[in-house]
Design a protein around this nucleic acid. Structure first.
Length: 795
DNA sequence: GCCTGGTCTCTACCC
DNA sequence: ACGGGTAGAGACCAGGCG
């Protein structure tokens, strides 16, 4: 027996013979790739009996269900808590994990049974929870080495556990072997099909900085697939990364492999990648990561192509990469000279992908270790499931039973308040933000599913917090599950931030800790939304409703205080208030809020000048350093043409910095005339919109839907989530009849009037209207004298 | 048949 | 597959007019 330290990479289980076997894949401190087996773990479920029933009789009755294939090996009475209330439950153990749902259904039917619990947790996750193992983190284990007699297992050592594995805290990462890969398919018919179209290039980029490309000779791709499989097995990466590989590369490779007779046997057990939870593709013994999952969270990039995201993150500048549009690919492949360009394009793609991995992996690793979701799943799992896995682990630690998943109808409830802004230009405005408002409200009022007191219950009013407006009550004591979890998250984050100070800003440790505190913050902030999500195990509408009610009360009171101090409130949304920046009074306000409400509010920024129209959630601010903050307006929306956005931004800048409406008007007129003279390139006229469902489900034929149909007609592919780039062409009738995919349009097809009347002018007028400028004036050819911005100040 | 105003659908934003 | 609040465009349709 030996004690080893290893970094947790992946987990799965197999049923071998008549017993399940947990398989944990890791990297030892010495850098060996190891597999640890645990044959002792068994699946189970809990039975919550009805009150006043004969438990012994129930136990006997459950025992009679036992089958030979997966016998019930034990039933014991254990003490747990269910929503904070102590309960006695039966822990029913069996052998084969996939038999648990069968037992669940049968036991549920029994008249003595109130509920069956924790029968909907996958076996390997059950193992992680019960031993509190931390994916993507270090562990210590007492193990015994067993001989390597399984040649299909790609590891240096195999062990069997002899004592429970224990997580240990080490701020470091092992030297991981990583590759990024990307495939290119021959697509003369539009979207490629694995049944018909070969994989012509597979590019790989590894952590040694090597670029490897396999390409087909003519259209024979069997060797390409074979070389890829061989390469992966030989390089033996721990992490495989791609961009949209879960939805495209892997399914294509596997189906293409089936077609040409190549098994994509790239896992550490020589198996193929296979579809798994949250729509991700699992590769046994390795972490397959789709970087698109992380790119999706970058809201600044509206059209999340690899090149756009890589450009935004500084991984590869658009100007420095080779680009080929998908409809041009066959041309680039068929022409042997142009093929070199194609290979360069493929290389740039895979290098960008690897670069994105460098940006996203540290965060993914931290998120994985905190939530307890394996590295390959954490990106694919939605926010709700990340929160839920974290809570399930915490529940186990607190001896709380995990509620089952229940299907519920959607129930709306009232949310936050948004103030009517005082329209116009304001000088020196401070934006005050409550720090972590909802988490702090949950903590202060002990809001949690297990502290909620139902209206039927009689309770001393002094022992509960009562929510304003709606009257939901929450026990003051003891601290609820969510309160404890939030306090833990917040104090942990504080500790991590303290620890960060020990390291220099450019050290590896600093980066790790910084990503960790970010992940903790995101998790804490998601806790409110989680409770209001009907799909949540800990769904509690009353809690979510109470949080927003207390939020409304808090912000209202804060605004009242500001006014009491003589501070003019210009605007406010949810947890922020915009006030005139009087340093002394603002300082007083912050203290007053702290003292009276017990919440921290901070100056987030101070605008030298800020402009509001009458609309909520839209404003432009000028920062002291000269930068312009645009919030909500067309200029930052992805579904307006670049041209209209540029015009609006320029107008805002002229107005805020120079105060000259005349200059702004002249500028707009200039653009309009450029447009009429076809001086504006077509790519500035593209409007991007997301297809959110299957095309046949649309009730109205919107322009982007019509354009999407045209893409399909051309052989292209459109699915839910696709971004459609279209332009409006000349003609009559509905816009949707005149919307065509941008790559099918020529500059002469463009309906200039649409871009003038429905894009440029409205975007400009949105801002200029307040200064008395009308659409007519913007379109007029003669220049009239305009008032300056400063005529509007103060009155 | 054409115009108009109101309603509904849809998307992307804010916090 | 975390929440509600909000702006705005365009499709769609009923009703008025002639």
């Amino acid at each position: 027996m030996v004690t080893i330290r290893f970094w947790f990479l992946d987990i799965n289980y197999q049923v071998v013979g008549r017993e399940p076997r947990i398989m944990i894949w890791g990297i030892s401190e010495k850098g060996e790739r190891i597999l640890i087996l645990d044959k002792t773990f068994r699946p189970y479920l809990y039975v919550l009996p009805k009150e006043n029933i004969d438990v012994n009789k129930l136990m006997l009755k459950i025992k009679t269900l036992s089958t030979a294939r997966s016998p019930i090996t034990s039933i014991e009475i254990v003490e747990k808590k269910y929503f904070g209330k102590p309960v006695k439950v039966l822990k029913v153990k069996t052998v084969i994990p996939d038999q648990v749902p069968k037992y669940r259904e049968e036991i549920k039917k029994m008249s003595e049974v109130e509920k069956v619990l924790e029968a909907d947790i996958r076996f390997s996750m059950r193992y992680l929870i019960d031993y509190q193992l931390q994916p993507s983190a270090w562990h210590e284990a007492v193990v015994e080495e067993i001989p390597l007699k399984m040649p299909n297992l790609k590891v240096d050592k195999i062990y069997e556990v002899k004592a429970p594995i224990k997580p240990i805290r080490l701020v470091k990462e092992p030297k991981l072997r990583k590759i990024a890969f990307d495939i290119e398919c021959y697509n003369p018919h539009g979207a490629p099909s694995p049944e018909r179209d070969p994989v012509i290039i597979i590019s790989i980029y590894n952590d040694k900085g090597e670029l490897i490309q396999f390409s087909a000779t003519d259209r024979n791709d069997k060797p390409v697939l074979m070389k890829f499989v061989k390469y992966v097995q030989e390089y033996d990466p721990d992490i495989i990364m791609g961009y949209n590989n879960n939805k495209f590369d892997w399914p294509y490779l596997i189906n293409r492999g089936k077609r040409v007779g190549v098994k994509i046997a790239i896992s550490r057990s020589s198996g193929e990648p296979n579809p798994s939870v949250y729509g991700h593709i699992s590769v046994m013994g390795r972490a397959n990561i789709d970087l698109y999952d992380f790119a999706e969270e970058i809201t600044e990039v509206k059209v999340k192509t690899l090149e756009n995201v890589a450009d935004y993150l500084g991984v590869m500048a658009k100007s420095k990469r080779t680009m080929i549009n998908w409809w041009e690919m066959p041309k680039y492949w068929d022409d042997i000279e142009k093929r070199k360009v194609f290979l360069k394009y493929a290389a740039d793609d895979v290098i960008s992908t690897y670069g994105l991995g460098e940006k996203f992996l540290p965060f993914a690793i931290q998120l994985s270790s905190i939530t307890g979701l394996p590295l390959d799943q954490v990106g694919a799992a939605s926010v709700g499931f990340r929160v839920e896995w974290f809570l399930m682990r915490e529940a186990y630690k607190a001896n709380e039973l995990i509620p089952s998943k229940v299907e519920r109808p959607y129930e709306p409830y009232k949310g936050a308040i948004v103030l009517e802004p005082k329209k116009g230009v304001h000088e020196d405005i401070a934006v005050l933000d409550f720090s972590a408002m909802y988490p702090n409200i949950m903590i202060k009022y002990n809001i949690s599913p297990d502290t909620y007191v139902s209206p039927a219950e009689n309770i001393d009013p002094d022992k509960v917090w009562r929510a304003p407006e709606i009257g939901h009550r929450f026990r003051k004591e003891p601290p609820g599950f969510f309160k404890r979890v939030l306090q833990m998250l917040l104090s942990l984050r504080k500790k991590v931030r303290e620890e960060m100070k020990k390291y220099s800003v450019d050290s590896v440790e600093y980066r790790i800790l910084d990503e960790r505190q970010r992940a903790l913050k995101i998790l804490a902030n998601a806790m409110y939304g989680y409770q209001g999500w009907v799909g949540a195990r800990w769904y509690c509408k009353q809690a979510a409703e109470a949080i927003t009610a207390w939020g409304r009360q808090t912000i209202r009171r804060a605004m009242e205080m500001a006014r009491e101090l003589g501070l003019e409130v210009i605007y406010g949304d949810t947890d922020s208030i915009f006030v005139k920046y009087d340093e002394e009074k603002v300082k007083k306000l912050i203290k007053m809020i702290k003292d009276e409400l017990g919440f921290e509010i901070k100056i987030d920024k101070v605008y030298k000048r800020v402009f509001f129209t009458e609309a909520k959630k839209r404003y432009v601010g000028l920062l002291p350093d000269g930068r312009i903050d645009i919030v909500g307006f067309e200029a930052i929306r992805g579904d307006w043409s670049e041209l209209a956005k540029d015009v609006q931004e320029a107008v805002m800048e002229i107005i805020l910095k120079e105060g000259s409406t005349k200059k702004a008007v002249d500028y707009v007129r200039g653009i309009v005339s450029d447009l009429r003279e076809k001086k504006i390139p077509i790519n500035k006229l593209i409007i991007w919109k997301t297809i959110s469902k299957r095309l046949e489900e649309y009730e109205v034929e919107a322009p982007h839907v019509a354009a999407a149909r045209k893409i399909i007609e051309k052989g292209g592919k459109v699915t839910a989530g696709s971004k459609i780039g279209y332009v409006i062409t000349k003609g009559t009738g509905r816009l949707s009849d005149r919307a065509i995919p941008y790559f099918m349009a020529k500059i002469d097809d463009i309906d200039v009037n649409y871009y003038v009347d429905r894009q440029v002018i409205p975007a400009a007028v949105r801002v200029l209207e307040y200064f008395g400028i009308t659409e007519k004036e913007l379109k007029a050819v003669t220049v009239k004298a305009q008032k300056t911005l400063f005529d509007f100040f103060g009155g």
